[in-house]
Amino acid sequence: MKPLEREFPKKMYDELGAYIESLETTKGALIEILHKAQEIFGYLPRDVQLFVARKLGIPGAEVYGVVSFYSYFTTKPSGKHIISVCMGTACFVRGADKILEKFKERLGIESNETTEDSLFTLKDVRCIGACGLAPVIMVDGKVYGRVKEEDVDAIINEYRGKEAKEVDKVLK
């Protein structure tokens, strides 16, 4: 059986609703609204898409059509840390594909998947524009340049370590 979609607090919907109402016009504003929704909810599950559709008085299919068209929008929740491996051309010719493979192997997931413990989401992204540091990966907002295959474990462990420390704190 498919698990039920996560329920979000009403506050989040209210925030999105207030944003939509604050707009001068909703004509042509669907993408902006979806950006805002993703900022609030972290991703765009079906319920949120339907909420937007009803607010704007357009079919849900139209919203879904836009959500699925643009790669920036995601319908799946992300892990706590997002590892983005740049697959721009400059990084590719300097071996980004090998880095990506290594991450896949170490995390045991494919691109655009999340680890079971919800700690990491792995993404291959197009050019983050730091070509001078190729190959580049980005974890959350932090950029790691000139990454070598050997560095992958250390990077993962850095975040696992942080996590373990936080858990320790809570337990204490």
Partner: peptide, 26 residues
Amino acid sequence: LKYGAGAFVCGEETALINSCEGKRGE
């Protein structure tokens, strides 16, 4: 300002205009 949402084809001017209108960037 209008924000793109990650679609290479939106560099094409008619697609870009569609995207500015909040539609799929075709």
